[in-house]
């Protein structure tokens, strides 16, 4: 087990807790964060759609974006920018350390 000593990183679970091409949420410092497992690694963004607070972790995930399940706002998981609107979500740093998911808030 490799623990990250840097206290700005938080251990939030194991990679296998997030099904492939799906998302799950967790809380870090009182903030809801959505973690996604993509074909080429993990992504972490704020859990709620800025439009109407939709749960982004419940959205459909494609190669690099997620679609909000409530009204279809679509966000790039690397940049956080909406692909069909002006909104954006904050992107957080996320690492896979020997199967553990570590997140550092932006």
């Amino acid at each position: 087990m490799t623990a990250i000593a840097d206290p700005t990183w938080t251990l939030v679970g194991r990679v296998e807790d997030v099904p492939l091409l799906e998302g799950r949420t967790t809380s870090i410092d009182g903030r809801r964060i959505a973690i996604f497992r993509l074909l080429d690694g993990l992504a972490a963004i704020d859990a709620h759609c800025p439009h109407a607070m939709g749960p982004l972790a419940d959205g459909i995930v494609a190669d690099s974006c997620v679609t909000c399940p409530l009204h279809g706002r679509r966000f790039d998981l690397r940049s956080g920018l909406a692909l069909n609107g002006d909104e954006s979500v904050t992107v957080h740093e996320v690492r896979d350390e020997d199967g553990e998911i570590w997140v550092r808030l932006s």
């Binding site: 459909i60 494609a62 190669d63 997620v66 679609t67 679509r74």
Partner: peptide, 10 residues
Amino acid sequence: AGRDCGACKP
């Protein structure tokens, strides 16, 4: 199909 935006996956 389904890789870019995923909208058609269902």
